[in-house]
Design a binder for these strands. Structure first.
Lengths: 236, 236
DNA sequence: GTGCATATTGCACTGAGTGCAACAAGTCAA
DNA sequence: TTGACTTGTTGCACTCAGTGCAATATGCAC
């Protein structure tokens, strides 16, 4: 019976992959905004392997159900059942229901920080930020991003959480920039740059999701151009 | 007994006013992000007057308890009891617990929009935005803002909601700007300006709350200067 | 007053999230 | 392999936010 349960979980998983034409959701998780555990360094042993498997089962079950039936309509009991764990165990993997989605975005925050450092040669802070974001944006795995974005727009609560993710991005970018310009006197400016750049990202994603014929990177470049034009025109 | 209850409510209210050195929370409410009812036009009659009184009782009870015992620790039963209504009735006034706080901020969104239109002569969009925000910021009723801000920092859930309020501000500012520059081709730029300006506001409020010796307006001016400096230095 | 609209309330319900204590499974050493 | 130790899983009972419904109370207009 337990075996049957596990098997149906695997089947559901395969079915899900096929139906959505994409693979490899979340090979690594950092546990969301304030991670409950550090999962990175110790990656060997049966225990850890099982944990990763469960994590993946939960995530896939959650995303699948969110897409199929909607976020609010999916209960934790549903997810737990589909992932072959108890409801109580769910909370040992995620602090809350929405963290299933947030953890996805958290990966991008990591990328942003890394990409910032790699683009150190781009010039001034805002140029570095722009190039870093462009790089990350080009690395978006298309169907996954759109799926998550679609879910996020379903409920107000999630849109709100999405806003939080942008703050994560901003923080990541800021930290990246700070490591390139370590001087203390520049801090406020870098903070501002991070804010503006993520803002540009936000606006582009918005436009892209509405009438997205062109690739996201195009919209992002335009946003930065707009930004410069508007601020140039300014007085004092 | 019911009278005793009502009287204690009034006493609590007076006590609250005295202890916080300020008055007139929320003379008008719009019901938060998506208001549940339009309370503005019809403002006469016993019924409406009672409604306003209840609204005020709820808000004061809520804020008082949030400050005294913390946001998470305050249950809706507490608030309802303190406001001399039933728990169920609470939901006829606010859609959720956090709306008590959000409704406060919503008032500022209205001010921002109005102030934008009034400052039409300031020059380019970003200048108008800056002047509008400065004006609103100068109108902050000091102890109230700080109190709300302090509560907002207590829980993660509230910080997230606070982020949503910034989006409200951004929207208000954008709408104000759009009424000044009605042309469609400028839209994206105005959106960008609104985003950047509210971002500047956000950063200033943050700094101000941390080491706030100077008035908020000072920080806001600095933020706009920083902004300009950073973007000027940029390449393409 | 009567009739109508709206406000208030209690009740029963769902669903998220927590604390606890029992139990199962992985780990490591002897 | 066995036994001690650690970590993971689970069920249970609980709290609290939020909703739907139906009964009752209140304000309002005639």
């Amino acid at each position: 019976m337990w075996l049957a349960c596990a098997r149906s979980g695997v089947l559901a998983l395969a079915d899900y992959r096929a139906s959505l034409h994409h693979v490899q959701f979340c090979t690594r998780f950092y546990g969301g905004l304030d991670r409950m555990q550090d999962l990175l360094p110790k990656s060997e042993g049966l225990r850890e392997r099982k944990r990763q498997e469960t994590l993946q089962r939960i995530t896939e079950a959650g995303l699948k159900s969110f897409i199929a039936r909607g976020y609010e309509e999916t209960t934790l009991d549903d997810i737990a059942a589909a992932a072959s764990i108890s409801r109580r165990t769910f909370f040992h993997y995620f602090k809350s229901k929405d963290e299933i989605l947030l953890a996805q975005l958290d990966n991008y925050a990591q990328s942003i920080k890394a990409s910032t450092v790699e683009n150190a040669s781009a010039g001034e802070p805002l140029d570095v930020a722009r190039e870093a974001l462009l790089k990350v944006v080009n690395g978006f795995e298309e169907p996954q991003m759109s799926a998550i974005a679609r879910i996020m727009r379903q409920s107000k609560a999630l849109q709100v959480r999405r806003g939080m993710a942008n703050l994560q991005f901003e923080k990541a970018l800021y930290e990246g920039l700070c490591s390139l310009w370590p001087g203390k006197q520049r801090r406020d400016g870098l903070r501002m740059v991070a804010m503006v750049a993520v803002g540009a990202l936000r606006l582009s994603v918005e436009t892209w999701q509405q009438d997205g014929k062109r690739p996201l990177a195009k919209y992002l470049r335009d946003a930065f151009k707009n930004l410069r034009a508007e601020i140039r025109a300014t007085d004092s």
